[in-house]
Design a protein around this nucleic acid. Structure first.
Lengths: 152, 152
DNA sequence: TGTGCTATGTTCGTAGTGCGAACTAACTGG
DNA sequence: CCAGTTAGTTCGCACTACGAACATAGCACA
């Protein structure tokens, strides 16, 4: 039962909040001269190197889409392809030094902006929200597209 | 303080949950032969007609981006431009009958899928999550990109 | 040992996205 | 009537995303 007209159902809440997060991503990307997809790529690769296959699965992209994304990131010096020593078909995609630094900056800027979205929540509310979203993320096996920052 | 390792901070929770929502949008769009952006356009226009300017502000797009999006939607018969009687420069963009039906279907499918993301939450948890996200949405003046379904 | 089958990536063509700059037309205020 | 603003469009560009077709490389197994 909705009480006051002010609170949304879970569904609209999730969709609209995700719209805000998308906007944050776009802003951060713009700030660092990246596209949103390149920013996302950097964030994923912050965790560890990936093969093209895993990377596609993680980002939810077809392999054919990925080739171009990685190509452009390589051309910008953000990322590098390295042959897999155990499988001559496969490659590992990993951050270059420049890409690593940019990833850190982009990640930090995005964290800051997302954090600001929740600025008006009290600490316990933030914990509660984190826990609830954590449940959703885990139940749906959301890939690690964004690392969890260490909470101080 | 995180207790078990299972729960995320608010920031990562929001980002990863929004990744799930984006995937849902992509799935629903695919189901109905739309692009994500077209689906979003239909959802916005479910509420009411918009001028190009308002529409750009709502979707977070430059007007030049919008022209093409609306053009393609017009070409597919989903949407229609109507002259503004009070201002001969301006137009109103609104759903055609076909677009309205498709919008309903797309909206319903998306609601269903997003709802499923939260399937493992108990009713009180869902209420709590809806309230917390509602706060974020309102504090940040997120535009009405997705209508709130009536809770039964 | 070879002979198919599968897995990993790339290439190519196509449609769509999103931006800024430049533009046209129409409204607004002296 | 003229200057300045506002609403939308056009254009060129880079990027995104897909599927189909392709080339290699690994794998299974007779």
């Amino acid at each position: 039962m909705g009480k006051s007209g002010a609170d949304l159902g879970v569904v609209a809440g999730l969709v609209r909040a995700s719209f805000l997060v998308n906007a944050v991503y776009a802003e951060s990307a713009r700030e660092y001269g990246l596209t949103v997809q390149q920013g996302q790529l950097l964030c994923v690769l912050m965790g560890r190197p990936y093969g093209m296959g895993d990377l596609g699965a993680t980002l939810g992209l077809e392999k054919s889409s990925l080739t171009g994304l990685v190509d452009r990131a390589v051309r910008r010096g953000l990322v590098r392809r390295e042959p897999d020593p155990d499988d001559r078909r496969a490659v590992h995609v990993l951050l270059t030094e420049e890409g690593g630094e940019l990833a850190e900056d982009f990640y930090a800027a995005t964290c800051r902006r997302v954090d600001e979205l929740a600025a008006r929540l009290s600490p316990p509310e933030r914990d509660r929200l984190g826990a609830l979203l954590g449940t959703i993320v885990h139940e749906n096996q959301a890939p690690t597209v964004f690392l969890d920052a260490l909470q101080p």
